[in-house]
């Protein structure tokens, strides 16, 4: 049975749509990530935890034991980690023996340290353990990895795996898709026009197979991408396209602010567009190299490509691809 199911949930605040047409079914003991803005994420958490009623649509939750954490949640700086966690253990009903979990959450060495002296990596793990000792069935977390160091991310992910293995369902949100990819979850994107969409992430191995096909390449000087819309078929020149994104197994051509679905798969498009300066920067994205304006590195493991144009669209770039991309551009 689904832990939460949301059908066409819309929430308006002060006449403005914050969330629109959100439909989601989350199974027990699963873990998903949703790409959405912080304001949307806050409202989504409040809706799921029943602190707020939706404007329309229905939300059914299978549990009342829901905890959520927003990225700016605070800890009591003047308490030590031990006092802080003991406080929440008293508030909770299960009364766990906290010292059993210090290894899993990598905080044994800071047990008697005041919270104000901790790094953000350590604070995030303390916060995760705080939620864990309250034994929720569903955990909603906003941007858990934001601002964390590489080492911090590794330890946090280990703690998070422990939480999930204990039977807790986890939903994370982030403004950046690469953060959700690091969490290794199914990724959904929230789009104000169409609601939630699942982003396809094919296995890395499939992708390598496709690369070997490039040997059979046939030069094509003329190629237009065909998109069928209602009874019309629209042809786009490769140079018009900003990027192509795979959503629910459909390749969507992004031009300006609009998406056009194509009948071809991302792999087929990649093959056809490689010689027009398109590059597969990520499993779900094919980018027009001419449209790239910036490459940003948020941490050593995550890179983001920023495209030209008013939307300043951001695409994830796999770590393994950075060098390859540099060579392509600089050659």
């Amino acid at each position: 049975m689904a832990m939460i199911s949301m059908t066409n949930v819309t929430k308006q605040i002060a006449g403005k749509n914050i969330l629109k047409n959100v439909s989601l079914s989350l199974d027990a003991n699963s873990q998903i990530g949703i790409k959405m803005a912080p304001a949307e994420s806050k409202i989504l958490f409040q809706l799921i935890s029943k602190r707020m009623q939706p404007s329309s649509g229905t939300i059914t939750t299978n549990t009342n034991n829901i905890l959520y954490e927003l990225s700016n949640d605070g800890l009591y700086d003047n308490l030590t980690v031990k006092k802080y966690l003991t406080l929440f253990n008293k508030i909770g009903t299960t009364n766990k023996n906290i010292s059993d979990y210090l290894q899993e959450f990598s905080i044994a060495d800071i047990w008697n340290v005041k919270i104000k002296k901790l790094s953000i990596d350590q604070k995030k793990r303390v916060s995760l353990l705080r939620m864990f000792i309250l034994s929720p069935e569903l955990l909603l977390i906003e941007s858990p990895l934001a601002n964390l160091s590489d080492g911090g991310i590794e330890l946090y992910l280990r703690a998070m795996k422990f939480v999930k293995d204990s039977g807790i369902t986890i939903l994370t949100t982030s403004h950046y898709i690469e953060e959700l990819l690091l969490l290794g979850t199914d990724v959904y994107r929230y789009n104000a026009k169409v609601g939630l969409e699942k982003t396809d992430i094919s296995e890395e191995s499939d992708f390598e197979d496709d690369n070997s096909n490039t040997d059979k390449f046939q030069p094509q000087n003329v190629f237009k991408v065909a998109c069928k819309l209602a009874d019309k078929t629209i042809f786009f020149s490769p140079d018009e396209i900003d990027f192509i994104e795979s959503i629910n197994s459909v390749s969507n051509i992004r031009i300006g602010e609009d998406y056009y679905p194509s009948a071809l798969t991302l792999n087929e498009l990649e093959e056809k567009l490689a010689h027009f300066g398109f590059y597969r920067c990520h499993r779900s994205y094919l980018v027009n190299l001419q449209r790239i304006s910036e490459l940003i590195s948020y941490s050593r493991n995550s890179y983001t490509l920023v495209l030209k144009g008013p939307a300043k669209e951001k695409l994830p770039l796999s770590r393994v691809k950075v060098e390859e991309l540099r060579q392509l551009i600089e050659a």
């Binding site: 935890s49 905890l67 959520y68 954490e69 927003l70 700016n72 949640d73 605070g74 800890l75 009591y76 700086d77 929440f88 508030i91 909770g92 705080r130 309250l134």
Partner: peptide, 13 residues
């Protein structure tokens, strides 16, 4: 100011 009250309130207090 420090967003600690919200944490208590979401922790069933």
């Amino acid at each position: 100011e420090k967003n600690t009250l919200r944490v208590l309130m979401t922790s069933s207090v």
